[in-house]
Design a protein around this nucleic acid. Sequence first.
DNA 1: TATTTATGCAACCAAATGATTGCACAACCA
DNA 2: TGGTTGTGCAATCATTTGGTTGCATAAATA
Lengths: 116, 116
Amino acid sequence: MIAQPLTFMKRDIFQAIADPTRRAILVLIATQALTPNALADQFDITRQAVSKHIKILNECELLKQEKVGREIYYELKIDKMKEVDQWLEQFRKIWENRFDQLDNLLTKLQSEKDES
Amino acid sequence: MIAQPLTFMKRDIFQAIADPTRRAILVLIATQALTPNALADQFDITRQAVSKHIKILNECELLKQEKVGREIYYELKIDKMKEVDQWLEQFRKIWENRFDQLDNLLTKLQSEKDES
DNA sequence: TATTTATGCAACCAAATGATTGCACAACCA
DNA sequence: TGGTTGTGCAATCATTTGGTTGCATAAATA
C-alpha cells in the first residue's frame, strides 16, 4: 500500500465543503459576520439544522466567532480556504502546463505557415 | 439521454473530492492512465470498493476511459477540476484583497517612518 | 478447450449524515 | 420579576455512504 491519507482529523475541509448548504453558509459569512439566526433565515431548514452545520464548520476551524450579548457572530476564517487552493495547486500545474504546450504548438504552426 | 441536466446531477465534484480515497485516486490518475486493478493495489480496500469510487468519479464526469482488451484505463479529466478552482475564486479575491490592503498599510507605515 | 484474469454489478451491513422535535439556559426587555 | 429571544445540546429518524462478499461475463492464455 502506497497511497493513504496521512492525517486523521475527524473532519477535514473537504468534508466541510461537500454539503451545498455549508458551501452557501461559507459564502455568506465570507464578507460579513452573521448570527445563527440570521443565517437560518436564508435557508429552508430549521435553525437547529443550521446550527449543526455551524458546529461542523467550527470543528474544521473554518470560523471566527465573536459573542455580543447573547448573540454570536460567525465569520469565515478565509485563510483556511487556502488549504483547498493548495490541494488544487498540483492539478493547476498540470492544466497550465498543458495549456502552455498547446499554446506553443499553435505558435509553431503559425510560424510554419508564415514561412511558406 | 444525450446531455444530463446540469442542475440535477446526482453528485457534484465537491462530493467527489470529499472522500480521502477518491482524492488519492484523482492524484494518481492525474498524470497517467491506470486500470482499476492497478489503482486497487495502492489501497487497503478491496478492488470492488475502488471500483465503486471509480463509478462515483465517473458519474461526476471526472474520468476519461480507454478500453484495451479487457483492461480499462482511467485518467483524470483535468479540466473538470477547474470547477473547484472557479468556486474558490470568490474566496481568493477576498484573501488577495486583504493581503493587498495589509501590504499597502505596511508600505505606508514604512514611508512615514522614512519621513521622520 | 479449460482455466485464469480483469472488470462490473448486486446484496448486504455498520456507520455517518442531515434533518427533525423538544428542552435547557442565559441574556435581554416590559 | 416574568416573558421573550438567541443559542446549543440530546434524542430520534430516514437516507446515504463506504465497505464487504459473491457472482457473472468477457478477454487472455495454457
